[in-house]
Each structure stands twice: as structure tokens, then as C-alpha cells.
Amino acid sequence: MNSMMITVYILLGAGAVCIGSQAPLAAADLLIPATHRAPGQTPVQRGKKVYEQTCMPCHQVDASGVPGMNPPLRKSPYVGGHSARLIGIVLQGLNDGVEIAGDTYSNPMPAFSTVLKDGEIADVLSYLRSHFGNKAGPISLAQVSRIRQILKNK
């Protein structure tokens, strides 16, 4: 396998990830250069690490959140829902007093656009979407970068 074949494979992978949300995680993984990733071997390991360092203090070890303050990420319509909204919340933060299942959550979520790299965001969101009772497809680096660009141009 030469480097050109790898490039082609990556490009194909990128297409698959952009078009379909069910792209294999391995393809998304390949797209994230080492400089954009958190340490760890697999996307899940890397995503777990980002979760523990960055998200856990507020959203808690088991992603159950804090009643009335920080929304749960377990079986969450925000986590499992539209990827663009989810990526946007991580990049821009949220201070709208989220309501989930009739309960409101009042603490603001800070913007992580300067704190986390796109690959770290892809890893942690892919981890969340496949853990804590969430069942949704992974998020790719390309998706995060695209949303970042859209928000920048807004």
C-alpha cells in the first residue's frame, strides 16, 4: 500500500462521512491528524479522556448531570439528535436555560471553540453518542470543521 492509496482511501472515507452519518468510525478516525487529537489509541479512548477532563466536572461521571443546573447527557435528545446542533453547542456554548423532559437546567455551558480542537470534539461527541444510553452515529472531524467554518462566517 503506497501513500497515494492511503490518500484515496482517506478521501473516500471523507466523502462517506460527510454524506452518511453511519460511516464506519475507523474512517472518521483516520481523518483526524495526530496533532488534532487527544492522546489515546481509539476514538472511544480518546473521547473518554476528553470527557473526563473537560465535560465530567459539570456533567458528572455517569453523565447524569446536576438536577436544575447542568443537563444530563444520558439518553439525551441533544446528544443523540442533530449533529450540527450538538457540534454548535460545544463550539459556541449555550446559555438559554435548556429544558429537557419538563425539567430546566440553568447553568451556562461555556464555548469550547478555543479550548478543544476539532478532532477532540469529534472524539468526545462520538464517545457520547455511543455511550450513556445514547445510540447515534459518530461525528467526524470534517463535520466539526464544517460547522466551525459556518459559525465563523456567520
Binding site: 458528572q60 461521571v61 455517569d62 447524569s64 448531570g65 446536576v66 438536577p67 444530563p72
Partner: peptide
């Protein structure tokens, strides 16, 4: 208590 949601009462 590891996370507040585990508490039966507060």
C-alpha cells in the same frame, strides 16, 4: 454520592 442525581432526597 458520586453524582447528585444518585441522591434520593436533597
Amino acid at each position: 454520592i458520586t453524582s447528585p442525581a444518585e441522591a434520593l432526597h436533597r
